[in-house]
Design a protein around this nucleic acid. Structure first.
Lengths: 252, 252
DNA sequence: CTGCATATTTGATGCAAATCAAGAATGCAG
DNA sequence: CTGCATTCTTGATTTGCATCAAATATGCAG
């Protein structure tokens, strides 16, 4: 009955689809399985379609596609964006490995935003109808899912605050801070990381012009807060970066 | 077993708590009960604590309060707001009768925002732990709740778009449009209504200075788009208001 | 390696909305 | 009704960021 493979295969180009259980996944402690007891993991495993691959620029789903599933990012990175009637794009989020994308659309039965790979990525597909059924059998899964959606709301709220009250400096600083935190959650360095998205996407997400983003990156580097090398970022002074990117302007 | 009162009592100062069933509530078709079959409504009724009253300015909950319940607004209006570390307030939403408030906090077990009555209001309290249990027995309720949270996400996204891409004019126009739609949903006039919140709250919510809000109200009136009388609003030209509050500036 | 497309940086200028500063209207307690 | 406290409106001024324009860097197809 137990179809899991005991050991992670000996590396080198084994298609991810071959990993038939969440058990074998290095992300299990930050992804859906964390809400499921080991003995129930099989049930979750059975409904998940693993290892769908996406090339850079490829869509996972588009706005108006019917809503069928949510997706756990396994590798790479995605952005979600919405289009207003008058055609301009708004980036609404970035999704890194271990995070769940696609929870918009539950209420409408179709997606209201599109999701696009920022780089070569793989995702695990979790059909939502199955997940709902399973949530009825596994209360902790239901709770976890409520919780995930609630967190999504919280993140949007934080972004709202950023966009309506904070200076361009504060917004960029916040981006670095949250990226660092998410790196850390995955067990990676929170000091040194690579931004998966373009300056354009950053500007769009934070409600700033590309030029402004670029200027602030440069200035933060001059102020010794970070070191920038293209998309590679090193946080040099997280204190000043978090705390008072605004105050120091007043002082200086 | 059936403890419902058959008929709505003959008006005049009957405490709302006396209405012991959602059945008797005029909002049942837009509130939680819409997700529940009549024969299961008793179960929902049993877990709801009805008719908690709030005076203008009173808090329903505060940030950091432990998260115990969500609330259906019965009458009046509430705002939710969050506080950033540096002390400034961000209004994150307004809640009208039939709407559910308090869904932040599921993931953290404590509220991350505060909810305050904008005017004398009553709410029905729905303990979340009970709701989760009941959702397991009533799949349509679980789905409805997922759906509500998803809609909350969608609304935040729309607001994000507004704040990062749109002019002050567009933001105010959007506020009128969504308020009108919500009035309509309640079966009230979408043309003539009263804003429950102050200019200050509007400015805060939309990321604008109070002065800017006031100026735009005045100008919209001069342009014949609306009629304003304090907090009373009459929509005179919803076409132009929705469509092209920006375009007309270019033309004119 | 070469060349074109795309992404990023840098500088100069303009404007939408914030801020500063009063004044007017409204609400409410006594 | 009177006076004080909010809330709202209006005008003058400042400013942060967008926009325009152009140079430079980077990636990648052939």
């Amino acid at each position: 009955m137990n179809v899991r493979m005991a050991i992670t295969p000996p590396s080198r180009e084994i298609p991810l689809a071959a990993r038939v259980s969440c058990n074998d996944c290095s992300l299990s402690q930050i992804c859906l399985p964390l809400a499921v007891e080991p003995e129930q993991l099989d049930e979750l495993d059975r409904i998940i379609r693993r290892g769908r691959a996406l090339k850079r620029g490829e869509h996972l789903y588009r706005a108006a596609d019917s809503f069928e599933a949510v997706y756990a990012v396994r590798s790479g990175a995605l952005k979600t964006y919405a289009m207003s009637e008058d055609g301009d794009e708004q980036v609404t989020g970035f999704y890194l490995p271990g995070e769940i994308v696609g929870m918009d659309g539950i209420s409408t039965a179709y997606h209201i935003s599109s999701a696009k790979a920022l780089e070569t990525s793989t995702v695990c597909e979790i059909p939502f109808a199955h997940l709902e059924k399973l949530s009825i059998k596994i209360p902790s899964l239901q709770h976890h899912f409520f919780s995930l959606m609630s967190r999504e709301i919280q993140e949007d709220r934080a972004l709202l605050m950023l966009l309506s009250k904070k200076s361009a400096d504060d917004r960029i600083a916040a981006l670095f801070t949250t990226m660092a935190a998410r790196q850390e959650r995955r067990g990676l360095s929170s000091r040194l990381f690579r931004l998966p998205m373009s300056r354009y996407d950053i500007g769009n997400y934070l409600g700033l012009a590309v030029e402004t983003v670029s200027r602030i990156f440069t200035r933060f580097q001059q102020q010794g807060l970070i070191r920038v090398q293209g998309r590679e970022i090193e946080i040099l002074d997280s204190e000043r970066l978090c705390g008072d990117s605004r105050l120091q302007i007043i002082k200086d």
